[in-house]
Write a protein that binds this DNA or RNA. Structure first.
Length: 423
RNA sequence: GGAGAGGUGGCUGAGUGGUCGAAGGCGCUCGCCUGGAAAGUGAGUGAACGGGUAACCGUUCCAAGGGUUCAAAUCCCUUCCUCUCCGCCA
């Protein structure tokens, strides 16, 4: 959510921002509603002032034994008018608030302006794509042959885009989870959280998944509960509606959770293998920061995600998303992409974003500055640290051997019961 | 799921339908005191929205949403949450 006052006073800049994002929004209607709201507010507040004064006077008259009946009749009419205007404002605000919740965040000035993923900028690269002296296989071939991935039974149990991991596959998934959590909690200073993976509508709205992206989520029929698409949702909302002290910031939270996405609108894409699933595991990092430090924290967070890939020895690159490719709530986003030999390209494995005060406004999370002064909204950041399913894929494809076996990276072996090779 | 008790500011905790945005305390801020600190002491200290260059003014907010009334933190209804007891359960 943006500050409505800012939108009102910076209409040009706001319109430019929307077009940079390729985002269609009924700006004229929004301004119209805002104007109507303020005009009506002025009228009703005048009436309420009159009513308050009248009510007070009636009280005094009763005390002094006078007959307030005439004034009471007048106030009765004022009251009816107030009710009428209040209803009008209610209607206006319902529409206005709904629109406000659908305004995307304003990109940071350092974000490249561009239309789509082709305009993203590569920031750095780590490791080079491996040279194989054989034709590298896709992970689905490797996984099925080794008996560690079962795509058919995943579909049987649920539907397409669900996969069963077996034996060493399941073990590696668990090893990756513990490897990542240990690194973040013991070396990067994160507090580990085990959050609910079903959350209510208010929580989903706080981080921006609702109201606009309901079709991407799984919803419970009989309860006001939704399956989380990422642990960013519960972690960021941990302090919703709270007043924090500056000395308690920054806060670093991480969590392992399954994530659930309907993937509506990506019907044909990545149908083979387990690159794009309705359910996948992820370790997520969330930081709550003061505004002056949040961009430093974004660099740190990105480096923490990279660290995982460095230790595992998987080639990757970091790109900065352009205005047209960024997510709804982000002010700046770095994506980390890993090299997938079978696809001969880089694919996203982590996304680290600074949302500035966009989510904090929705959630109502403020902090009291140590130097005194008014409470301010915090800045929130989130990043995958990292997607476990995709990490498993990258590991399998990059560490495959000519005979179809997979070498387990050394850093992971202690977490996999000393397993050195999957064959 | 059944019965009862509650939800008030950053925290704690009062509040007969009328001058209550809300006593008191804690915390915090600025002074005094002190060589410095603690203790003591004086004053101040909620937020959102609207209007105004500003000082400031107005409206709203006592879990959430409705209702009664000239007037609601206070009365009524609904929902949510917390606590105690019972039942059920991994």
């Amino acid at each position: 959510m943006l500050d409505v006052k800012w939108v009102r006073d910076n209409r040009e800049e706001f319109a430019t921002m929307l077009s940079n994002r390729n985002y269609s929004f009924p700006l004229d209607r929004f301004i119209e509603l805002d104007t109507m709201r303020r005009e009506t507010l002025l009228e009703v507040e005048t009436l309420k002032e009159k009513r308050n004064a009248g009510a007070k006077e009636i009280g005094l008259k009763k005390k002094s034994g006078e007959n307030p009946e005439e004034l009471m009749e007048e106030m009765r009419q004022v009251g009816d008018k107030v009710k009428e205007f209040d209803e009008k404002i209610g209607t206006i605000e319902t529409e206005l608030d709904d629109l406000a919740m659908r305004i995307p965040n304003r990109p940071h000035e350092s974000v490249p302006i561009g239309a789509d993923e082709n305009d993203n900028i590569e920031i750095r690269k780590n490791g080079n794509p491996l040279e194989f002296d054989f034709e590298p296989k896709p992970h689905w071939d490797l996984g099925e042959t080794l008996g560690i991935m079962d795509f058919e039974r995943g579909v049987k149990l649920a539907e397409s885009r669900f996969t069963v991991l077996k034996g060493a596959g399941a073990r590696l998934e668990r090893a990756l989870m513990n490897f990542m959590l240990d690194l973040h909690t013991m070396e990067h200073g994160f507090t580990e959280i085990a959050p609910p993976i079903l959350v209510n509508t208010a929580t989903m709205s706080g981080t921006g998944q609702l109201p606009k992206f309901a079709e991407d989520l799984y919803k419970c029929v009989d309860d006001d509960l939704w399956l989380i698409p990422t642990a960013e949702v519960p972690l960021t909302n941990l302090h919703s509606g709270e007043m924090l002290n500056e000395v308690d910031l920054p806060k670093y939270y991480c969590a392992f959770t399954p994530c659930f996405r309907r993937e509506a609108g990506s019907y044909g894409r990545d149908m083979r293998g387990m690159l794009r699933q309705h359910q996948f595991d992820k370790v997520e990092m969330v930081m709550l920061s003061t505004p002056d430090k949040s961009y430093d924290e974004l660099e740190k967070m990105t480096s923490y995600a990279e660290r995982i890939l460095q230790l595992l020895g998987i080639p990757y690159r970091v790109i900065c998303l352009c205005t047209g490719d960024m997510g709804f709530g982000a002010a700046k986003t770095y994506d980390i992409e890993v090299w997938l030999p079978s696809q001969n390209c880089y694919r996203e494995i982590s996304s680290c974003s600074n949302c500035e005060d966009f989510q904090a406004r929705r959630m109502g999370t403020k902090y009291r500055p140590a130097a005194g002064g008014k409470p301010r909204f915090i800045h929130t950041l989130n990043g995958s640290g990292i997607a476990i399913g995709r990490c498993l894929i990258a590991l399998m494809e990059n560490y495959q051997n000519k005979d179809g076996s997979i070498t387990v990276p050394e850093a992971l072996r202690p977490y996999a019961g000393g397993m050195e090779i999957v064959k």
